[in-house]
């Protein structure tokens, strides 16, 4: 089956991101296709490139990146939810006159239209909420 994941929970504050990542791994292990993960609401913090969790905890951002590298899973971040929470890629940072940037590839800033399309082209869209 073709799956999509909608992740709404912030990393480390909530169980949602840990569960979503484990579910994603289980999907590909079972031979399903994971099309994309869409990060929305506080889930956008999963894309923070500067995240530096303690070494004895799972590195969630690296976990998502690995999923992209190994299985081509798209990592889409809602641009409206991200910008108001301080998560900007290089283009947006320069547009808004900010010195640093906090999101980079393979995470991509995109619109909610992508979420609707994802849900409609997948057999299942699974939401992980706070």
């Amino acid at each position: 089956m073709r799956y999509g994941i909608l992740l709404l929970g912030a990393p480390y504050s909530r169980q949602a991101s840990h569960s979503a990542l484990r579910f994603a791994r289980a999907l590909v292990a079972k031979g399903h296709i994971l099309d994309s993960v869409f990060f929305y609401h506080d889930g956008v913090y999963n894309a923070a490139r500067l995240a530096a969790p303690p070494q004895d905890e799972p590195h969630l951002m690296d976990g998502w990146k690995a999923l992209h590298d190994e299985h081509g899973v798209k990592l889409d971040v809602c641009i409206a939810a991200a910008l108001r929470r301080g998560l900007l890629n290089e283009t947006e940072a320069s547009r808004h006159g900010k010195e640093g940037y906090s999101i980079e590839a393979p995470f991509a800033l995109t619109g909610l239209g992508q979420l609707v399309d994802l849900g409609l082209r997948c057999d299942r869209l699974i939401t992980f909420a706070p």
């Binding site: 709404l8 929305y40 609401h41 409206a80 939810a81 619109g111 909610l112 239209g113 979420l115 609707v116 909420a129």
Partner: peptide
């Protein structure tokens, strides 16, 4: 969450 849910509905 309410606002962000409504946003998805409007975009769709």
């Amino acid at each position: 969450l309410l606002r962000e849910g409504l946003d998805m509905a409007l975009v769709a």
